[in-house]
């Protein structure tokens, strides 16, 4: 008897969770409600069972998430009896920062990057789990599993700690922190196959349904609430769409798809011709933009 591919990925991730928790003072799990977060949370529960995961969940909210995401988040923490911290950057709340007037780059920087830094500082977390995967984007391919951040939350790609074998260096000085990515070696397809095998609940937005969308510069944007300003002549139409990745609804493109179940999604993926982040408006702001955001402290 031996472990299959998903068993091995699961065992590696659990190993990472345990090392991180054993060697940190105040860990937290960054919960962004998407499928990767769902898998991350499932693995955290397995890692510490029968104990509960010994850390809270942190959601850095932007007030622009899909409504179904927030409902799913609240249902999940209630069902599992977990502690959830929701942080909204108070300056953004005061200024009403939004992607329409302020642009996607500033919106993301202020709500997410600055918001995350505020929350980490406020609660003095010295270690944060995230669901990033190395297959997502070029600069993430070079990220360590345990990634050191300065007291200013900066990532310095030229000065990363060598990471050998499974010997993770978790040591930090006061104010410094470590970001830990238990899904580093998973691919998008692995995530879906695991969701299928383990029957992990995910936000229904991943499954095809008729939804009100507008085609904006080639990207299908769902009109999730009345705050979305429509351009002249723009009228939402109901189309059969789903999302491969979830974020702020005005910045997340839908794909036309009839995949209504996890097996449908897996099948669709096997023949897919575009990457999941293709629907992400923020990645395409500038060339090398993910790397720049990461250096500044974005997840």
């Amino acid at each position: 008897m031996s472990l299959d591919h998903l068993d091995r990925l699961e065992a590696d991730s659990i190993d990472i969770f345990r090392e991180a928790v054993a060697e940190s003072e105040r860990p937290v799990l960054l919960y962004s409600i998407g499928k990767d977060s769902s898998v991350l949370l499932h693995l955290a529960r397995k890692a510490f069972y029968p104990s509960r995961p010994p850390f809270p969940l942190l959601h850095v909210d932007t007030t622009w998430k899909f409504r179904e995401m927030i409902a799913f988040r609240d249902e999940t923490v209630a069902r599992l009896g977990l502690e959830l911290i929701v942080h909204r950057n108070p300056e953004c709340v005061a200024l009403g920062i939004n992607p329409f007037e302020h642009g996607s780059a500033r919106h993301t920087d202020l709500w997410k990057t600055q918001g995350l830094r505020q929350a980490l500082d406020k609660h003095r977390f010295d270690l944060a789990f995230g669901g990033a995967r190395r297959d997502e984007e070029a600069s993430r391919a070079k990220e360590r599993v345990f990634s050191f951040r300065t007291a200013q939350h900066r990532w310095d790609p030229k000065n990363q700690r060598p990471e050998l074998w499974r010997l993770y260096n978790t040591r930090v000085a006061p104010g410094e922190s470590i970001r830990v990515f238990p899904l580093s070696n998973w691919t998008e397809l692995d995530v879906w196959r695991y969701v299928e095998r383990e029957r992990i609940p995910v936000v229904p937005l991943y499954f095809a349904a008729p939804r009100p969308v507008v085609d904006r510069d080639g990207t299908l944007i769902m009109v999730d609430d009345e705050r979305m300003p429509l351009r002249d002549g723009e009228r939402p139409t109901n189309e059969l769409v789903r999302f491969r990745t979830l974020g702020c609804y005005p910045l997340t493109g839908a794909v036309r798809s009839a995949a209504a179940t996890v097996p449908d999604i897996v099948e669709e993926m096997v023949v897919a011709t575009t990457s999941e982040r293709q629907g992400r408006v923020i990645d395409h702001d500038q060339s090398g933009s993910m790397e720049r955001k990461k250096q500044e402290g974005y997840f």
């Binding site: 190395r134 070029a138 391919a141 070079k142 790609p157 030229k158 090398g288 790397e291």
Partner: peptide
């Protein structure tokens, strides 16, 4: 992937594919 590498035309760290 990294911007610094594009400038220098070399790979400067371990990347996993």
């Amino acid at each position: 992937g990294l911007a610094a590498e594009r400038e220098q035309g070399i790979t400067i760290d371990v990347a996993y594919r």
